[in-house]
């Protein structure tokens, strides 16, 4: 008997004896393959690398542009104001706390075109220094209607070094 015929005889006998096991196994394997293919298609790339989420989300959230440039950026150019501030009570108040977000002005290319408007003194100072029972006792505050009503704060106080 030739080896191939011998082999064929064995295979056919195997399928006859164990077909009831081979057929469900093939169905199982096909199902598994389909499952893995679908899983590959629908699960986002890298999902699970750090935890049960897409690692690409971290890059997406980080990609947001910055609005506040940060104190270190302001004092690079505005050294005179920084010195005046450093000598006064507002030493720990950052520039952008009053002047608002200035990243476009600091890092946007043309600082003249993006020069910020001066803050509205009438509302700006009062937000911090209006007398309020809930504020810490040691914080300097005035009852605004009783404190030179109608006169703007910067008529007397220099905002960068407000002490008189």
């Amino acid at each position: 008997m030739a080896p191939s015929v011998h082999h064929f005889w064995h295979m056919s006998r195997f399928f006859r004896d164990a077909g009831h096991l081979v057929r469900p196994a093939l169905v199982l394997l096909a199902g598994l393959a389909i499952f893995l293919l679908i899983r590959q298609a629908v699960v986002p790339k890298g999902f699970g690398r750090y935890g049960h989420y897409r690692p690409a989300a971290l890059d997406l959230i980080r990609a947001r542009p910055v609005a506040f440039a940060g104190q270190a950026q302001c004092v690079v150019c505005h050294t005179d104001q920084a010195q005046a501030r450093a000598a006064g009570k507002h030493v720990h108040v950052s520039c952008e706390a009053c002047h608002g977000p200035q990243d476009a002005h600091a890092n946007g290319g043309d600082p003249v075109a993006t020069k910020p408007a001066l803050p509205d003194v009438a509302t700006l100072c009062v937000r911090c220094h209006q007398k309020d029972a809930a504020k810490p006792r040691t914080f300097p505050q005035v009852a605004v209607p009783d404190h030179y009503a109608g006169v703007l704060c910067n008529a007397c106080h220099q905002p960068h070094n407000p002490h008189l």
Partner: peptide
């Protein structure tokens, strides 16, 4: 997001940056 786009660049959060009393 704890200003994740800022703190990963070495900046502080916008709220901390603008808090006048620290």
């Amino acid at each position: 997001t704890l200003c994740y786009h800022r703190i990963t660049k070495g900046l502080t959060t916008a709220c901390c940056e603008s808090c006048p009393t620290g």
